[in-house]
Simulated assay, not measured.
Amino acid sequence: MRILKFLLVFLLVISCSRKENHPYTFYYWKTHLKLDQEEKKILDHAPVPYVYTRFFDIDKAAGKFQPVGVITRDKSFQTEKQIVPTVFITNQSMYRISAEEIRFLAKNIHDLVQKKAKEYQLKVNNEIQIDCDWTAGTRNDYFKFLKELKRVSGKEITCTLRLHQVKDKSQTGVPPVEKVYLMCYSTSSPLENSNKNSILDVVTLKNYLSKLEDYPVKKMDVALPIYSWGIVTNHLEKHKLINALSRKDLENPGFKKISDNEIEIIKDGFYFGNFLSKGFKIKVEEISDEQLEEVTRFLEKKIPHFNLIYYQLDSKFVSNRNF
Score class of each variant (00 low, 15 high):
Ile3Asn: 01
Leu4Ala: 10
Val9Leu: 14
Val9Ser: 02
Lys19Asp: 01
His22Gln: 07
His22Val: 07
Tyr24Phe: 15
Leu33Thr: 00
Glu38Ile: 13
Glu39Cys: 04
Arg54Ile: 01
Asp59Thr: 12
Ile71Cys: 04
Thr72Gly: 08
Thr79Arg: 09
Ile83Ala: 07
Pro85Ala: 05
Phe88Trp: 15
Thr90Arg: 13
Ser93His: 11
Met94His: 07
Ser98Ile: 13
Glu101Thr: 14
Asn126Thr: 13
Ile128Thr: 15
Ile128Asp: 12
Ile128Ser: 14
Ile130Phe: 10
Asp131Val: 12
Cys132Arg: 13
Cys132Lys: 14
Trp134Asp: 00
Gly137Arg: 05
Thr138Phe: 10
Asp141Pro: 00
Gly154Trp: 14
Glu156Pro: 04
Leu163Phe: 06
Pro176Phe: 13
Glu178Ser: 12
Lys179Tyr: 14
Leu182Met: 04
Asn197Glu: 03
Asn197Ile: 10
Ile199Ala: 00
Leu209Ile: 07
Asp221Ser: 12
Val222Met: 04
Pro225Ile: 12
Trp229Gly: 02
Lys240Met: 04
Ile242Pro: 01
Leu250Trp: 03
Lys256Thr: 03
Asn261Asp: 01
Ile266Trp: 09
Asp268Ala: 07
Asn274Gly: 02
Lys278Thr: 08
Phe280Gln: 05
Glu285Phe: 05
Ile287Cys: 04
Ser288Cys: 07
Gln291Ile: 05
Thr296Glu: 08
Arg297Phe: 06
His305Ser: 06
His305Gln: 15
Gln312Gly: 05
Asn320Glu: 07
